[in-house]
């Protein structure tokens, strides 16, 4: 019995380790390449350690001679802008859907459920035409607007608010608290872990999104991180793939670091929401 448990544990470690190597390999390759001198990038399969540390020049090129920093800044603006509007509109609406009776509630929730199956690519064409007509292409607004609506957030927060104890709400109402106060001072603070988990979803999705920025953005000044990488790849590296990989590492880093910091909270938040 003991030996069987031991064997199982060894086996599971083995599987997890092999998987981990496969998961990590591209990252290791990316980091190794990012410190390699340009002339050594290709044809170095069998001597993975660079002959000369070229990390400084590669990262310097990515940071100072490319559009990558600008793209990252744009990414931050877009992600935070989207998240702010998403939370400001979805939280009260989700609370209303969960706890208040109002005309049209059923229809609205039905639409939310329907919306869950509609990816951005579906309304993209008409939205693009409308933005073009309004002369708003290639603006931050165009980048953010379609994502102000988050049916996923509405659904998630509604599920959460449904579990919020009714007695507390009643007590608060008896104390003379208005619904507005109840949402922002009672319900939302209780939902913080769910909000955290949702924020991770939202930021990861919009930092990395390619489809929509590819359509509405044309200038370097509005490039988002994926567009920054594409432009860097095509024209700006001048064939230096070391610098390209440095740029890729820089663009990947913020989310990875953020996840490392917020991991526990994220998993707890997931558990607390309807996603369990």
């Amino acid at each position: 019995m003991r030996s069987r448990a031991f064997l199982a544990s060894v086996l599971s470690h083995l599987v997890l380790l092999i998987g981990a190597v496969l998961m990590l390999a591209p990252f290791v390759w990316m980091l190794l390449t990012s410190i390699r001198p340009a002339e050594e990038v290709f044809g170095a399969v069998f001597d993975p350690i660079p002959s000369r540390f070229a990390g400084f020049e590669n990262y310097a090129q990515a940071l100072f001679a490319s559009n990558v920093p600008r793209a990252m800044l744009n990414g931050a603006v877009v992600c935070l802008g989207i998240l702010a509007v998403q939370l400001a509109t979805a939280l009260p609406a989700a609370y209303a859907l969960a706890r208040l009776r109002f005309p049209g509630r059923g229809v609205l929730f039905g639409l939310v459920l329907f919306g869950l199956t509609v990816p951005i690519q579906v309304p993209a064409l008409p939205l693009y035409l409308a933005l073009a007509k309004a002369g708003l292409l290639d603006t931050f607004f165009a980048l953010m607007f379609p994502f102000f609506l988050t049916v996923f957030g509405l659904f998630l927060f509604r599920q959460f608010f449904r579990t919020y104890p009714e007695e507390i709400l009643q007590a608060a109402r008896l104390d003379g608290m208005g619904e507005f106060e109840i949402v922002w001072r009672l319900a939302v603070p209780a939902a913080l872990p769910a909000i955290g988990a949702f924020s991770v979803f939202s930021i990861v999705a919009h930092w990395n999104d390619l489809y929509w920025p590819l359509i509405v953005v044309t200038s370097r000044e509005r490039a988002t991180p994926p567009l920054g990488i594409l432009a860097f790849r095509d024209a700006e590296t001048g064939g230096n793939y070391g610098a390209l990989m440095a740029g890729a590492a820089l663009i990947t880093a913020p989310l990875v670091l953020a996840f490392l910091v917020a991991r526990r909270g994220f998993v707890r938040g997931l558990t607390m929401t309807g996603l369990k």
Partner: peptide, 12 residues
Amino acid sequence: PVTSTLVAMATV
């Protein structure tokens, strides 16, 4: 890999 930018990683 979930948090990584797929465009960047595709280049890798």
